[in-house]
Structures are given as C-alpha cells and as structure tokens.
C-alpha cells in the first residue's frame, strides 16, 4: 500500500496553532484560494540562489500542472501567519 504524504488530508479541516513571541502560525491543508500565495512562495525560493541550492523544488511547470489539476493542492500542507494571512512555509 502506497500513500502520498498528503492525500486524503483534503477531507480534514483540522488546524492547530503554535504561538511564539510575535506570531501565531496556523497549519492546514492548502485549498484553492491558497494557490496564488503558494506560487509566490515558490518564486521566493527560486529567487534566492542559496535557497535554490538547498531546497529540492520540482520545475515550475510540473508544480503548476498539478495545482491546476486540483490534485496536488490537496496534498500540500501550509503554515500561515495568522497576523498577516501570509503563507510562510
């Protein structure tokens, strides 16, 4: 039995919070409305030469294809800063 680390999470809406001094971080499964912010996060990683070397990122057209197919977003887990509603991880 093989499981993608993420599928079926789409049926769960469980989120939990971890607070630190400045921010509350919410963890959840990505939804359709998170796609633009997710693409920005990918661009951010690619725009940093150092991060590009340290993060294994699938080619943009691959990721975007999955996002458009509506498959991958159900398997993407995000950390969002609740103060700014920005995806930070």
């Amino acid at each position: 039995m093989k499981i993608l680390l993420s599928s079926m999470g789409c049926f769960m809406t469980i989120s939990f919070f971890a607070s630190d001094i400045n921010h509350s971080i919410q963890y959840s499964v990505a939804t359709q409305k998170d796609i633009p912010s997710l693409l920005q996060l990918m661009d951010c990683a690619r725009s940093s030469a150092e991060d590009c070397k340290r993060v294994v990122i699938a080619p943009a057209h691959v990721q975007e294809e999955y996002l458009k197919e509506g498959i991958e977003k159900q398997r993407i887990f995000i950390a969002k800063d609740t103060a700014t509603d920005r995806i930070v991880g």
């Binding site: 039995m1 993608l4 680390l5 951010c44 991880g89």
Partner: peptide
C-alpha cells in the same frame, strides 16, 4: 509495506529557526 513520499518543503527566511518546518 507503507510508503510515504514527501515533496519539497520551504520556510521563508525570516520565519526560520522557530520550528515551523518541524511542526509542518
């Protein structure tokens, strides 16, 4: 056997060293 496949992960530089990736 049970196989889990994890894709890439990334945390914005200004949010690192807070355990966000671990929690995620």
């Amino acid at each position: 056997d049970i196989i889990l496949y994890s894709g890439s992960d990334y945390v914005l530089p200004e949010y690192r060293k807070r355990g966000i990736n671990t929690e995620l």
